[in-house]
């Protein structure tokens, strides 16, 4: 047993350093080089910029919308809502009083049934998407706030829908930031 131990020290020590250099330094740096060269857009966070080049968000990260003239995303448990430094779900259990209270407060009494994703917190708190139904139930409000025909707003949503890949990978959904930017471009 003693010899088993002493014979292990040099390889254990040397291999820790060698693997650390290869897997902990070289591999991530090489991948960073590849990403920054071949996929600079994605590797830097799929950033979305306005006409002046200012970063307004990421195509992959949801952001908070509260005004009636924008489509709203899902309730967010990331920090105070859509905090890009604090991704999190609500972690409330199915029979939680807090969950029931929150959903009751969010459900629009005059509009039943409510699409589930519109009143449930996403897993990341940064979900950039809502379901097609959740977008469609907001069309009337958005159109009224912007003084535009409902048809035009609905048309915008339907053009923004991302369909499941191969028919079964994912669900039909709308990127909230993208559709709101399209709204701004169409009718500021």
């Amino acid at each position: 047993m003693g010899q088993d131990f002493t014979s292990s020290l040099r390889p254990a020590f040397a291999m820790t350093i060698l693997f650390a250099l290869l897997l902990g330094i070289l591999y991530p740096l090489a991948m960073t080089g590849v990403g920054q060269t071949i996929f600079p857009d994605q590797a830097n966070g799929s950033l979305v910029r306005d006409a002046g080049g200012r970063v307004v968000g990421s195509a992959l990260i949801g952001q908070a919308f509260a005004s009636p003239g924008y489509f709203h995303g899902r309730p967010s448990a990331a920090g105070k809502g859509y905090d890009g430094l604090a991704s999190s779900g609500s972690n409330l259990g199915p029979a939680s009083q807090a969950l029931a209270d929150r959903v009751r407060a969010d459900v629009d009494a005059g509009r039943s049934p409510t699409p589930a994703d519109l009143v449930t917190a996403s897993a990341s708190g940064l979900d950039p998407h809502i379901s097609l139904e959740a977008a469609l139930v907001q069309v009337a409000r958005v159109a009224a706030a912007r003084g535009m025909p409902e048809e035009q707003a609905r048309d915008l949503v339907e053009r923004a829908v991302e369909r499941p890949m191969l028919g079964f990978l994912g669900t039909p959904h709308v990127n909230v930031l993208a559709v709101n930017r399209a709204l701004d471009a169409l009718r500021p």
């Binding site: 991530p28 990403g35 994605q42 307004v56 990421s58 952001q63 908070a64 924008y70 930031l177």
Partner: peptide
């Protein structure tokens, strides 16, 4: 990376949101 996963040595980036707020988005390798 091709699908959108970041790979950078930067720590985060600031964005000015459409509603005029500020969003700091964590990045990394």
């Amino acid at each position: 990376m091709a699908s959108g996963v970041p790979q950078t040595l930067a720590g985060s980036i600031d964005a000015a949101t459409l509603e005029g707020g500020r969003q700091t988005i964590a990045l990394g390798p």
